[in-house]
Amino acid sequence: MIAKPDTARLEFRQVTKRFANPRQGGVVVAVEDVTFSIADGEVVSLIGPSGCGKSTLLNMGSGLDPATEGQVFVDGELVTKPNRHVAFMLQKDLLLPWRTIRENVELGLEIQGTAAAQRRETALALLAKCRLSDFVEHYPHQLSGGMRQRAALARTLAVDPVVLLMDEPFSALDAQTKMVLQQDLGRTLADTRKTALFITHDLVEAIALSDRILVMSHRPGRIIEEIPVEIPGRDNPMTRRQDPKVGVYVKRLMDLLHVEQAAA
C-alpha cells in the first residue's frame, strides 16, 4: 500500500481518463494528468467550461469509473470500486418515487445493511436538520424542487461518507431556492466537518461555498489554476456571497474561463 498522506481525504494523482470514441478519431481524452488533494474538512470547488471532464473526475472519485492512468485515493485508500467512504449527489435529485422521503434517505443505509431502527433514527435526525420533518412520510412528487434536493442531501449524508462528491447539485433550482440550499449546505458541511468536492458552473456559488477553487481547461481537461478563497465565514455562504471581495474573485475566474471573449 502506498503511504497514506497525513491529511488528504481525497487525492487524485496524475489521473488521465480516455474514452474510446470511434466517431471522433478513436480516442477522446476527457481529463489529462490531473493532480490535486483535498484535506480533511476542506470544501473545494471545481469549475470549468462545459465538457471539460468535471463529471468524469467525480465518477472516478466515486469508484464507478476507473481511471485510465493514475490513481485516486480516498482516506489514503486506492479507489477501485464504489466504497462506503464516498457519496455523491447530482443535479437530479434521483429520489425514488415509490419511496417516502424517509425511505429515500434510508436507501444507502439499507443497501449497506444497517438495522431498520437505526436507519430510521439517522434518517429522521438528518431530515430534521434539513428542515423536512413535516414531510417525512410524503412522497417525492408532493415536494418542491428545493425540498427534494434537500432530501437528496440528507440521503447523501445518511451513509456518513468521508467525502461528498457533488455535481452541480443546485443548478436546476431557481435563484432564491438555490441561495437557501447553499446556506443549508454550507452550514451542514461546517457542522459535520465533511470534506467535499463541489462541481459547479456558478462562479459565485463556488466562491461562497468553498475554501479553494480549482479551474479546469477545455478538453482535455487539466487543472490550470488553484485559487484559495480568502473570505471568512465559509459556514455562512449567504453573508459570504455579499463580501466585496467576491467581485475580485469573479473577475479572476471570468478571465481564466475566457467568459468575456466568448461573449464578444
Binding site: 465518477n59 466515486s62 469508484g63 464507478l64 464504489p82 466504497n83 462506503r84 464516498v86 457519496a87 455523491f88 447530482l90 437530479k92 434521483l94 425514488l96 415509490w98 436507501l107 444507502g108 439499507e110 443497501i111 449497506q112 451513509v159
Partner: peptide, 29 residues
C-alpha cells in the same frame, strides 16, 4: 430506468440483486 439512479445505488455499494430488487423491479411496476 435512469442510469444515474443505478449508479447512485452502486455508489452505495449495492450488488446486482440489490439493484434489481430496490431499483429495477419497483421502477418497472
Amino acid at each position: 430506468i435512469d442510469p444515474d439512479i443505478v449508479r447512485l445505488a452502486r455508489s452505495f455499494t449495492a450488488n446486482r440483486f440489490q439493484v434489481f430488487w430496490k431499483i429495477e423491479f419497483p421502477a418497472a411496476l
